[in-house]
Amino acid sequence: MPLYLEIIICISLLIGAVFLLIGSYGLIRLPDIYMRLHSPTKASTLGITGVLVASMIFQSHLKGSFSVQELLITLFLLITAPVAANMIAKTALHYRKKPLERTQNQELMETIRDREEPQKPSES
């Protein structure tokens, strides 16, 4: 394997590892569930993307053609992580988990929680 590919793979792995470490630390350290959601959905997703990019480069070199599997995994993660975070936040909101006192716009939480489904237009 050429030296420049090894350097690119190592840099990508290091960047991914740093973001994964930051995401893991944030998950432990942040005080409430609403803040904790940012850590795994942003930093950890970026970290996994760095590791998968390194794997894609390595596998493409081994096979001699472009490796699509890692790209599909990355796209799947980038699509599902925000959806999962949204669902977790909605669950915490409906279970009335209290945010920190210094959180702004807390009055909007009651409005969002008590919101009704939009009415379907009546068929005539």
Rank of each mutant, 00 (worst) to 15 (best):
M1Q: 14
M1L: 14
P2Y: 09
L3R: 12
Y4C: 06
L5M: 04
L5D: 08
L5I: 08
E6Y: 02
E6V: 02
I8Y: 08
I8K: 04
I9D: 13
I9Q: 13
C10P: 02
I11T: 03
S12K: 02
L14Q: 05
I15H: 05
I15Y: 09
G16R: 00
L20P: 10
L20A: 08
L21T: 15
I22Q: 04
S24C: 15
G26R: 00
L27W: 12
I28D: 14
I28S: 14
R29V: 02
P31K: 09
P31S: 07
D32I: 00
I33P: 05
I33Y: 02
Y34F: 06
R36D: 14
R36K: 14
R36T: 02
H38C: 07
S39G: 01
S39A: 15
P40N: 13
T41R: 10
T41L: 09
A43R: 08
T45I: 07
T45C: 09
L46K: 06
G47H: 00
I48E: 01
T49Q: 00
G50K: 04
G50E: 00
G50Y: 01
V51T: 11
V51L: 11
L52Y: 03
L52P: 02
L52W: 04
L52S: 05
V53H: 00
A54L: 06
A54Y: 03
S55R: 10
M56S: 14
M56H: 11
M56T: 12
I57K: 07
F58N: 15
S60L: 06
H61A: 14
H61N: 15
L62F: 07
K63H: 13
G64M: 10
F66N: 07
S67T: 05
S67I: 00
E70M: 05
E70L: 00
L71E: 06
L72Y: 03
L72F: 03
T74P: 01
T74G: 09
F76H: 12
F76A: 15
F76I: 05
L77I: 10
L77V: 05
L77Y: 07
L77R: 06
I79C: 07
I79D: 05
T80R: 11
A84D: 11
N86W: 08
M87G: 04
I88P: 01
I88D: 00
I88M: 05
A89Q: 07
A89G: 13
K90W: 05
K90I: 03
A92D: 00
A92M: 00
H94D: 10
Y95M: 13
Y95T: 07
R96Q: 11
K97F: 01
P99W: 02
L100G: 12
L100P: 06
R102V: 11
R102T: 13
T103M: 09
Q104I: 12
N105G: 08
N105D: 08
N105M: 09
N105C: 03
N105P: 06
E107G: 03
L108Q: 06
L108I: 05
L108F: 12
M109E: 06
E110Y: 01
T111A: 14
I112P: 13
I112R: 05
D114T: 15
D114Q: 15
R115A: 11
E116L: 08
E116F: 01
E117T: 14
P118L: 11
K120M: 12
S122W: 11
E123M: 10
E123C: 11
E123F: 09
S124R: 15
S124D: 15
